[in-house]
Amino acid sequence: MLMKARDDGGKPGTPPEAAPQPSGPGPSKIEREGQRPTQPVYQIQNRGMGASASSSAVDPMVGQSKLLPPEKMKHSIKLVDDQMNWCDSAMEYLRDQTDMLVVGVLGLQGSGKSTIMSLLSANTTEEDQRSYVFRAQTQEIKERGGNQSTGIDFFITQERVIFLDTQPMLSPSILDHLINNDRTLLFISLQIAAFLFTVCHVVIVVQDWFSDLNLYRFLQTAEMVKPSTPSASHDSTGSSGNEDGAEYYPHIVFVQNKARRDDFCPRTLKDMHMVVDKLMAHSHLKYKGTLSMLDCNIFPGSGTYPLFSLLPGYRGHPSFSTMVSKLRSQILAMPRCQLSHTILTEKNWFHYAARIWDGVKKSSALSEYSRLLC
């Protein structure tokens, strides 16, 4: 805080500008006494910067613009288009901050991937599905056995959670289209799964019936052709892996959609967990220990105590909106492990993901795998 010495010669209450000033070129009183002349702090900081710099430094609109929240997305955009080319349109929604969570989804055709991702990201169960951020399968597409999603769709929330919706795995409609048009993309579903296993913190696997062995074989194959985590000394995705030998693997969450009442029985849930443990016993994917319906206690005693059926509105399980809300809170609380050898900002993640996608498309392991099958 800068203080001005009291002028004993001035009258009390006299403003500083009204005080008599010394005439002539002689030194002022402050200079004669050896004191340092004072001036407002903002003038000292802006000295020599010009009038324009001074005005912009104190412009309140400039400060407010830096505090504005990022632009809110209203619908998803393409990260990978129909021709499996990388898109740059998502870059304008990303920021230079590291506190982010990346959630991807895999599932069979018509299992409800886009609906679940919309409910986890920006929509509620009361809204019309036509307004969801990820477009769900229309009735017309269902009747002709087609697929709604193609490539990879991108959406980021205000909480800085990136959601990636993908085209269905093992889809007969996509397979038929690729056979008749572009055979080089026959294994695109494997490429997408291997890509998600490298750039996502959490990968949700949606299934509408339990359990499809082909789905687990597909996940194991995608894990096998997954690109190695780039090391600190290699910038390209073709490196041999991390120097310390540590490979990155995401958390994988199995979601049973379109469940029946019997699926909520504690005994059935334990059987499901046992089956998943046996099928994923040799996998490095983190599929247990972080999120489980048995640990959230949202339907205690269901299927055990028949007195619960006498309660009004009881259906053997909580409502759909309650289940979605619980799943969303648990997904957002998942650990945000480091994806690469360095801490990535949102924009760094975008460039990192672009390199990974290019490396997946040129993967020698996937090429050898497709050659052996064909």
Rank of each mutant, 00 (worst) to 15 (best):
F264L: 05
C265A: 09
L291M: 14
L186A: 13
S302W: 06
G63C: 03
F187D: 15
T138G: 09
Q129G: 07
A53P: 04
N214Y: 13
M117W: 00
N297H: 02
S171R: 06
Q43W: 12
G238V: 08
V103T: 03
E71N: 05
L285V: 14
N257M: 09
L372D: 00
V253T: 01
M1E: 10
K29I: 15
N46W: 08
E127P: 00
L344R: 03
G107K: 02
D176I: 08
K78H: 08
L279A: 06
Q97G: 00
R160L: 11
R355E: 09
K4I: 13
D153Q: 05
P227M: 07
F308L: 12
H317R: 12
T345N: 06
R6G: 12
D59H: 07
K326T: 15
T184E: 09
V80F: 00
P312E: 05
I152W: 00
V275R: 10
L215S: 01
T157N: 07
I156L: 04
S340I: 01
N181E: 14
G145C: 10
K286F: 03
Q330P: 01
T124V: 03
H201N: 09
S121C: 00
N214R: 09
P312W: 03
P172K: 04
D262T: 15
K74E: 13
A53V: 06
F195T: 06
P266V: 00
Q109E: 15
W357R: 02
R217D: 08
H251M: 00
I356G: 04
V58I: 15
V58T: 09
K4G: 10
M169N: 10
K72F: 03
P70M: 07
P300A: 05
S325A: 15
G313R: 04
E368F: 03
S240C: 09
G50I: 11
I174S: 10
K113G: 15
R160T: 01
M100V: 12
Q137S: 05
F187M: 11
S321G: 01
Q207G: 07
H284K: 12
Y216T: 01
A193T: 14
K66T: 09
Q21R: 08
K4L: 10
N181H: 02
S239H: 05
E243P: 01
K258V: 13
M49L: 12
E140C: 13
Q220T: 03
L79T: 15
V253M: 02
I252K: 03
V225N: 07
V58Q: 04
P306Y: 14
K286C: 08
G50T: 11
L307M: 09
N123G: 01
V202E: 02
L344V: 06
S23I: 11
G151A: 07
G48E: 04
I152Q: 00
E17A: 12
L366K: 02
S23N: 06
M272E: 07
V255R: 03
S367K: 14
P12R: 05
D277T: 09
G110Q: 09
C374G: 14
S121L: 01
G313Q: 06
R32I: 14
M272W: 00
S28L: 15
E247H: 04
N180W: 13
Q338S: 06
S302H: 08
H341E: 07
M272K: 11
